Computed example of a mutant assay.
Amino acid sequence: MSIELIQVSKKFGSFEALSSVNLTIEDGEFVAILGPSGCGKTTLLRLLAGFEQPTSGEIHMNKVPVAKQGFALPPEKRRIGMVFQAFALWPHMNVWEHVRFPIRHHNETPNAIRANEKERISKVLDMVGLSELGKRMPHELSGGQKQRVALARAIAAEPSLLLMDEPLSSLDAMLRMDMRREIQSIHRQTGSAIVYVTHDQGEALAMADRIVVMKNGYVEQVGTPEEIYLRPETEFVAKFVSKANLIRGRWNDDVFVPQGSDDTWVWQGRDVARDFKASGLYPLRPDQFELSPTTRPGIQGEVVNVQFQGKEFHYHIQVEQEQWEIVSPLRFHLHEKVSLNRSSG
Rank of each mutant, 00 (worst) to 15 (best):
D263K: 08
V241S: 03
K41P: 11
G70M: 07
A157F: 09
G223N: 02
E227H: 03
D275I: 10
N116P: 04
E227G: 03
Q85W: 05
I299K: 08
E29R: 09
N107S: 15
N252G: 00
H106D: 14
G144E: 01
Q147T: 05
L161T: 01
E235G: 05
V31Y: 04
L89D: 06
Q147D: 07
S169G: 00
P297T: 11
A204I: 05
W90Q: 01
T264I: 12
A193S: 15
T198D: 06
P167A: 09
G301R: 00
T234R: 07
T224D: 10
S343W: 01
V124T: 11
A112R: 15
I155M: 09
R114A: 14
E290W: 03
L48N: 00
E158M: 11
A244Q: 05
E336Q: 15
Q189F: 07
I186Y: 12
D263V: 03
M214C: 04
Q189S: 15
P75G: 07
G223F: 02
M164V: 09
Q309F: 05
M164E: 10
S339P: 09
G310K: 11
E325M: 02
E158K: 14
I317C: 06
R180G: 11
N305G: 02
G38C: 07
G269N: 01
E203W: 12
A244E: 01
I228V: 08
F236Q: 05
V237I: 04
P102Q: 03
H316C: 05
V64G: 00
F240D: 02
K77F: 12
A238D: 00
S344N: 08
L125E: 04
R181L: 12
A72L: 03
L23P: 09
M207Q: 12
K277P: 02
G57N: 04
R331H: 14
E16K: 15
F71W: 11
M177E: 14
V319W: 08
V95H: 06
P91D: 02
G144V: 05
L73G: 08
R79C: 10
L281V: 07
A67C: 00
E166N: 03
R296L: 15
Q318P: 04
E117Q: 02
Q53E: 15
F84Q: 08
P74C: 13
D253S: 11
F240E: 03
E182I: 12
I33E: 09
E108Y: 04
G260C: 04
Y218M: 14
G310Q: 11
K68Y: 15
Y196P: 12
E119Y: 01
V303P: 05
E322K: 15
K146M: 14
R270E: 14
V219Q: 09
G13R: 06
S169Q: 00
R180I: 07
N252R: 06
E203K: 13
V124N: 10
L340P: 06
G202L: 15
I33W: 12
P297K: 09
Q259P: 00
E97C: 01
F256R: 00
F332P: 02
V306T: 10
I299V: 14
G310W: 08
F313H: 13
Q300D: 10
G280M: 02
V303N: 06
F332Q: 04
Q288W: 06
R285W: 00
H314V: 13
G143S: 13
H105E: 09
M82A: 08
S261F: 00
H139D: 11
K243C: 01
G38L: 07
D254R: 09
V149Q: 12
H98T: 12
P74I: 13
